[in-house]
């Protein structure tokens, strides 16, 4: 398997807080067009890794590349533009702007960039998330699962280099969660979208093409095509993997 260039690369990334080292010399490559799950117990640094990869947080040492752009060299304005144009986000909760309708939320990144949405593409994305009949609704009128699906549509609409999902099913019941995971999977299979998902849920990780395990700020395991059983096993006995 020879991927041309990794969608996202971290090279020797460290991030320290006064009392704790969140990331300790982490180097990973995120494969283009695949879904990577990042797992680990709370405090393992998985969220910090996601924030650093997405340019939401700065690193103390090392470098992060989105495509061939080094995030460390970017000022605030360029970082914002990069987030807008190259990165899609799906957060655990509070994903949508409450004053905007579902449709307006979906095209928000494009509108912020001053670009007019490509109708065909927007229609395809909206069709994929299956919310064509709820477009005029405000977030408060949508269920949690529907809100997350709108968020996925918004993440896809700018054709980003990578979509980062931070515990996207954390606030959902299992049925709605399964719907969102299936949708993310479809983004990868149908649109060739690169997805990075932070989760503590083995079932969620089971949808991924690859699972990275973090503990104490280090990558302790890298599992291709993880099954739910395997993930559970690694999570139960993390020390053995190191």
């Amino acid at each position: 398997m020879s991927e041309p260039v990794a969608a996202v690369r971290a090279v020797g990334v460290s991030k320290r807080y006064p009392t704790v080292t969140a990331l300790d010399d982490v180097s990973v490559e995120i494969d283009t067009g695949r879904m990577t799950a990042v797992l680990g117990p709370s405090g393992s640094g998985k969220s910090t890794l996601l924030h650093c990869l997405a340019g939401l947080d700065t690193v103390d040492s090392g470098a992060v590349y989105i495509g061939d752009v080094n995030l460390c060299g970017l000022d605030e304005r360029r970082l914002t533009r990069l987030r807008r144009d190259r990165i899609g986000f799906v957060f655990q909760s509070f994903n949508l702007v409450p004053t905007l309708t579902a449709a307006e939320n979906v095209v928000l990144p494009l509108r912020l960039a001053g670009r007019s949405p490509e109708r065909a593409w927007v229609a395809r994305v909206i069709d994929a998330v299956g919310l064509a009949d709820r477009l005029g609704h405000r977030p408060a009128e949508l269920s949690g699962g529907q809100q997350q699906r709108v968020a996925v549509a918004r993440a896809l609409v700018a054709r980003p280099a990578v979509v980062f999902a931070d515990e996207p099913t954390g606030n959902l019941d299992s049925l709605a969660g399964a719907g969102v995971l299936a949708l993310l999977r479809r983004c990868v299979d149908e649109f060739g979208q690169t997805v990075v998902m932070v989760t503590h849920d083995p079932i969620a990780a089971g949808h991924a093409d690859r699972a990275l395990f973090l503990r104490d700020g280090r990558v302790v395991d890298d599992l291709p095509s993880p099954g739910v059983e395997q993930v559970l096993e690694r999570l139960r006995a993390p020390r053995a993997a190191a």
Binding site: F94, V97, L108, P109, A113, R154
Partner: peptide, 16 residues
Amino acid sequence: RREFGLLRAVGMGRRQ
């Protein structure tokens, strides 16, 4: 706060 954070995350500039 969270709404502003969200807007910033999906690409709203400070000036905007």
